[in-house]
Amino acid sequence: MATFVFGPQWFLGIDSMFEMISVVIALAIAWYSRKAHKLTDDAKYQSISAAFFLIAIGMALKIATNFSIYHSIKTLAVMGATTALSPAEQLELIYDIGYFLARYLYINGLMLLLITLVLKVRDTRIIALFSLFNLIAILLSSEPYHIFHGLAITLLLFITHYYYQNSKSRKTTTSKCVFYAFTFLLLAHTSFVLVSESWRVPYVIGEALQLFAFLLLATNLILIMRRR
């Protein structure tokens, strides 16, 4: 039987609110990169747009899955089991499909950032190959939760190191914002990986760190947009 709820009871819904804000910020970055691509016709903006779009959709799917699970728990508690599947099986099916898609898209977003922007590889065959590795790792793992956060930590280690070097050479407020944002995102996933049945506090810390990371990315975008 899968664990459907990772955080403490009082945090249900608050996590979705935090993630909703992050989704909006990720979509704003995707939109601005798309705009930059249209204006300059440079493929690198298309890559960053696709990466943040995948991250946003992944997070949105997690919110939708959580919402469905909470709703199903309430409905089944009131109506009882009237379908071919037992309530537990229904929840597990929603959880499996929803979370698989959410994790797969989110990891592909991070992978796209690493491959196209950090490693500067534009070969679509390499991107497809890495995407297939992610699919196998997340789909076939008996511990998809830990595999997902482990993969995210690995990718974010490389991405954060790249942004550390970038902020060191540029020395601008905006480049520091991006570096700190990815550092907080790395810390968030490190916190998520520590969550267990008996210790759910790291989930709350992880969600707060993740929100802070996206707020820093929003600050970066606002600073750029306000530039005259």
Binding site: A36, K44, Y45, I48, V118, L221, M225, R227
Partner: peptide, 14 residues
């Protein structure tokens, strides 16, 4: 807008 895109490019190390 080009100036903004340049800053966006720098901040993301593109």
């Amino acid at each position: 807008e080009i100036k903004r895109i340049e800053e966006f490019t720098e901040s993301f190390g593109l």
